[in-house]
């Protein structure tokens, strides 16, 4: 029973661990406690899913070819200015 008590975590304890586990290595003990909590807690499972969705979306936004919604372009006069300064070198 003592062991079970030690393994028990609240949602408040769990959510930072979810984040931490996505960022790198967490200790075996933490990973185990996280796993146990997640198997019994639907809310934290949803939370974990949400953070993973955000992580994957951020990776997409970060790609070189991601086109921003506003579809911004360099102003024509800035383009001209850059072209000129490139020619002058």
């Amino acid at each position: 029973m003592k062991i079970l008590k030690q393994l028990k975590m609240t949602c408040k304890d769990t959510s930072p661990l979810i984040s931490e586990s996505m960022d790198g290595h967490i200790s075996f003990g933490k990973r185990l406690r996280l796993k146990i909590h997640l198997t019994i807690c639907k809310a934290c499972q949803c939370y974990k899913n949400q953070l993973e969705i955000i992580k994957n979306l951020a990776k997409k936004i970060g790609s070189e070819d991601f086109s921003s919604k506003k579809n911004q372009t360099l102003r024509p006069e800035v383009k001209e200015k850059i072209k000129q300064s490139l020619n002058n070198i």
Binding site: A43, C46, Y47, Q50, I53, K55, K60
Partner: peptide, 29 residues
Amino acid sequence: SGHWKIFPKDWGLDPEKAAENTELAHRLE
């Protein structure tokens, strides 16, 4: 007692496929 006050919702999305959702990506931006 360390429980969620407001339960995180099920967004109904598969994290592996979420990145294909361009509209949502713009919203995150």
